[in-house]
Design a protein around this nucleic acid. Structure first.
Length: 592
RNA sequence: GGAGUCGUAGUUCAGUUUGGUUAGAACGCCUGACUGUCACUCAGGAGGUCGCGAGUUCGAGUCUCGUCGAUUCCGCCA
């Protein structure tokens, strides 16, 4: 098809081009027909330029008014200075006096208006994703994403990293998330799995001596979705040999420095803060604390000062080795209604209820537990938390494993309800010293807290032979999470590189030697041929880009995201397949 | 797997509390008028399986149950 090709794009023309004859290709974004004069906003990825059609040319005008939104046209004309400029448009000082145009393609009336402030619902936008992506807000996200790709390639290349592709069809492994399975035609009844991460491959690359590996890779996990979780997502995956945790931190921090410098023009301070897992839980009730909250709202453990308080609820908690802890909300109007809301909130988290101490502006103290604890204890708590008039203290008591996370959640809720989050901040934080295992009551066994290739810290190695639950759960791992503004942005560890240690870990999680050999034999075998000490980390690419775009959901930084039930609404997948295909695979569908 | 919210014109919503005449508005679409708009303006018009299926009722957009889809949270996500 022959057509007049563009000489410029729709975002670049300005006063300096006045007088030139140019051609633009693009989509009709908006038509304004004033009867004697016709204005058309022409849109492409780069911007919008106004076309003007005069009625002097009757034929041109008559065909111009027939244009509909989203028609694709090629328009040729002269760049002229506008009579009335539009200061909101980069091209707002000029317009194109059209001498001729051709329709390259017509468009049906779109199901929703393509406009920046889109009004259509999420599912409609997903169904017509190609229309949604004509909006600059979405295009800009994808452009920013592309810029981050380039920083990854460039930054890691400069440090001698090799980008190496790893297989998408791999072996299904136990542990961790549910695998997406792919049936094999050649080997009927056998299955590949899509990678949850290229974990074993990158470790094998280290054994091979490739030394520094990085990859922007797709990962797949068949678990339920959230706003920041898709069934397929992208990671920046890296691994290095002959390194310690500090080396991984350094290379990672440099990367984020460069991203923030190039994308946001912000110098983020390095090194990042480091906090142990235990501190994070006990101080913020979370292993991914948001440090942007005004006044910090740290959790204070007050179990000690409430020994023998005489208040049955607290005494019982202390007898059963539970925890009493509190947070302080500074200088906020706390109403009866908001206390009720908070009570409902903690009940949903499995706590019986919440106690509070409210200090009025005049210093008067109200608390439903004052009559049980007495004035002295209340004063002690107030001074413990350094609370002042106008503040409110919330106190939770119960099972230690519930109290801290509940207070952590309450902290986030209060921060949101009372708008205490400083959105301008970027608070990076490493969390270290995670437990290596935790006991899964339902399955009656230990499971890896991070993943099962994580090296225990040296001083805990001897406990791998222990049979005591307390000792095994006390083992700390050489692993680390990167947290940014309350989001887990990445996770990594120094890996086990000795087959003996790896076997012990497999045994603790309940894999027999035979099963370990069957599932991970190749890795154990590789470790027998001179595996170097190695470690790495993987960062959530979608989450990173979402944060840079100021978005909470990762959906709008992905060109073709899935809905919350893991469907693609545009192409209607997943879907049934031909019987013939199933037959070839030896698969029959059972009715549940 | 569990809980919440939502589903009405092409789109975004109102109407559902308390069942009752012909289901409304805005944007979009169609027709006409208009020579400096940029949310153009003005006049007129078309457009509805109230997600789907049962039930209650003389009567259901409205009440009940089921189901499908979207979305948020819990479980889950090494």
């Amino acid at each position: 098809m022959n057509f007049n090709k563009r000489t410029h794009n729709c975002g670049e023309l300005n006063l300096s081009a006045v007088g030139e004859t140019i051609t633009l290709n693009g989509w009709v974004a908006k038509k304004r027909d004033l009867g004697g004069i016709l204005f058309i906003d022409l849109r492409d990825r780069y911007g919008i330029t106004q076309l003007k059609i005069n009625p002097d040319n009757k034929n041109l005008y008559d065909s111009g008014i027939k244009l509909g939104n989203e028609f694709v046209i090629s328009a040729t004309g002269k760049v002229i200075k506008r009579e009335s400029i539009n200061k909101y448009l980069p091209t707002g000082e000029i317009e194109i006096e059209v001498t001729n145009f051709e329709i390259l393609n017509e468009s049906e009336t779109p199901p929703f208006n393509v406009e920046e402030d889109v009004k259509a619902s999420d599912d409609l936008r997903l169904q017509y994703r190609y229309l949604d992506m004509r909006r600059h807000t979405l295009t800009d996200n994808l452009i920013l994403r592309n810029n981050v790709y380039h920083i990854v390639h460039e930054y890691f290349k400069n440090f001698g990293f090799l980008e190496i592709e790893t297989p998408i069809l791999m072996k299904s492994t136990p542990e961790g998330a549910r695998d997406y399975l792919v049936p094999s035609r050649v080997h009927k009844g056998k299955f590949y799995a899509l990678p949850q991460s290229p974990q074993t491959y990158k470790q094998i690359l280290m054994v091979a001596g490739l030394d520094k590996y990085v990859q922007i890779c797709k990962c797949f996990r068949d678990e339920d979705l959230r706003a920041d979780r898709q069934p397929e997502f992208t990671q920046i995956d890296l691994e290095m040999s002959f390194v310690t945790q500090e080396d991984i931190f350094q290379i990672s921090e440099g990367f984020f420095r460069q991203v923030w410098k190039e994308i946001m023009n912000i110098d983020i301070p390095t090194p990042f803060r480091i906090m142990t897992y235990n501190d994070a839980i006990q101080t913020y009730g979370s292993d991914k604390p948001d440090l942007r909250i005004k006044g910090e709202m740290k959790i204070h453990t007050i179990t000690e000062s409430l020994l023998n308080s005489g208040f049955k609820v607290f005494d019982d908690v202390i007898t059963s080795k539970g925890t009493i802890a509190a947070i302080k909300l500074e200088k906020q109007e706390v109403t009866r209604k908001s206390i009720d809301g908070i009570t409902d909130f903690v009940k949903k988290l499995g706590l019986g209820g919440i106690a509070y101490i409210k200090i009025a502006k005049d210093g008067a103290v109200t608390s439903p537990i004052q009559k049980f604890l007495g004035e002295e204890k209340i004063k002690e708590i107030i001074s413990n938390l350094q609370a002042e008039p106008g503040d409110t203290i919330f106190i939770l008591s119960g099972d230690t494993k519930k109290v801290y996370p509940a207070l952590g959640n309450l902290r986030l809720k209060l921060a949101e309800d009372f708008k205490l989050i400083d959105e301008s901040k970027y608070e990076f934080l490493w969390i270290i010293d995670f437990p290596l295992f935790h006991y899964e009551e339902e399955e009656n066994r230990y499971v890896g807290e991070h993943h099962i290739f994580t090296m225990p810290k040296d001083e805990f190695l001897r406990l791998l032979d222990s049979t005591s639950r307390e000792e095994i759960e006390s083992i700390r791992a050489n692993c680390y999470d990167l947290v940014l503004n309350g989001t887990e942005l990445g996770s990594g560890s120094i890996r086990i590189h000795k087959p003996g240690i790896q076997k012990k870990v497999f045994n603790i999680i309940g894999l027999t030697d035979e099963e370990a050999k069957e599932k991970f034999g190749f890795l154990l075998e590789a470790f027998q041929y001179g595996a170097p000490p190695h470690g790495g980390v993987a960062f959530g690419f979608d989450r990173l880009v979402a944060i840079l775009c100021g978005l909470k959901s990762i959906r709008d930084v992905i060109a073709f995201p899935k809905s919350v039930s893991a469907s693609s609404l545009m192409d209607n997948c997943p879907n049934i397949v031909e019987d013939k295909q199933l037959k070839e695979l030896g698969i029959s569908i059972t009715k549940s």
